[in-house]
Design a protein around this nucleic acid. Sequence first.
DNA 1: GAGTGTGAAGTAATTCACAGCG
DNA 2: CGCTGTGAATTACTTCACACTC
Lengths: 222, 222
Amino acid sequence: MPSPSRKVSESAIRRLSIYLRVLERLEREEELTVSSQVLADRAGTTAVQVRKDLSLFGSFGKRGLGYAVEPLKKQLWAILGLSQRWKVALVGAGRMGAALFEYPHFRTRGFEFVAVFDSDPKKIGTRWSGLRIQSAKVLEDSLRENPVEIVILTVPGRSAQEVTDAAVRAGVLGILNFAPVEIKVPSGVRMNAVRLTVELEALTFALQMEAGRMLKVKRQRG
Amino acid sequence: MPSPSRKVSESAIRRLSIYLRVLERLEREEELTVSSQVLADRAGTTAVQVRKDLSLFGSFGKRGLGYAVEPLKKQLWAILGLSQRWKVALVGAGRMGAALFEYPHFRTRGFEFVAVFDSDPKKIGTRWSGLRIQSAKVLEDSLRENPVEIVILTVPGRSAQEVTDAAVRAGVLGILNFAPVEIKVPSGVRMNAVRLTVELEALTFALQMEAGRMLKVKRQRG
DNA sequence: GAGTGTGAAGTAATTCACAGCG
DNA sequence: CGCTGTGAATTACTTCACACTC
């Protein structure tokens, strides 16, 4: 597992993860090698960006040839931390929780759900793929006894912070937050938020801008 | 609806959307005003960053006092394009599609699902909140007849690109892609991707780094 | 005094330009 | 030649410092 020469930016890491996705697809298409140009086109970036990103962790390419698909995939796999297995607890067994629990691409990457929590008495005690849904009340004790590295949070906004605090007390290392509120974690715990409204609003902002620009052009012409 | 003085970065927009989320919460807590400092703490950024971001669109604060919560919320609402209603089509009526279709925070922001498509014959014809699920085959014609501005894509990777192409031909303006592949859209169409594996891998990369650092420290001590 | 708004300075990320290798 | 790897130049983003207003 290569270790970075300089400090790597969050955006570089996210691109590496995209390259991995593209490489997996190239592998299914039985491509043996790929140039930074092709990888960039597929990943929505530039060839130099690809080479810079990869060069942060080593020299994986062959000049005149490009990168060997399968070996590069393995490298990225290791760089992104996928060589080790990560135990995950899901908190919030609603629709979003169910979607993520069943999401096949988490499983193929070695993420393993080992606990599910919810606060709805109707759900507690039922099973998801053989995993008994536990009461959110016992989350801290349960995670102390059977530790996980990562918690995926799909609870309503009102309970997000208290669940987070309990998980942190139990020694969780990272949190992926889908709850519709900003949560606070102490330094030493990593938190990454998926903000669905932000994603849509980034889109509507851009569309509105575009529409405004079009109007202006129209007025100028008229 | 204020229009920006200079060009605004994607990251600034995403922060504005986070501020909106925080302001909505402050409003529920019946706060009347908020300083850039408090807003920043809640949003996970700095006071200057907040002021810079807001100043891109106008002067919304009062010196010595801060920002009035409700008016600022309304401003952000308008800036982000939420003053107009956006019609949305969902393509992919699986678990993730269901989770997003039911997601209350899309609806409270005025996003309106007007069509749902899927390719599973078992699902076609059934209803979601009164909305008949249509065959993905008729997507292009259907969207031509009843246009939408936005498509939310929750289909398997293999069909993501062809669905995208059909939606684009039908005149869709923006796409929010949850499919686990990179898709291409022509210029003039906005695309925003939610990459679930990227979110988790950004986390595991950081955790792995952290673990590596700890080991080094340990070795130095030993 | 408390807190905003903003040009200037500093830092980070991206792109350019090209040397170097297969 | 074709394509990678990388210092140098450029551009974008953030933070500093402080004038200004309520």
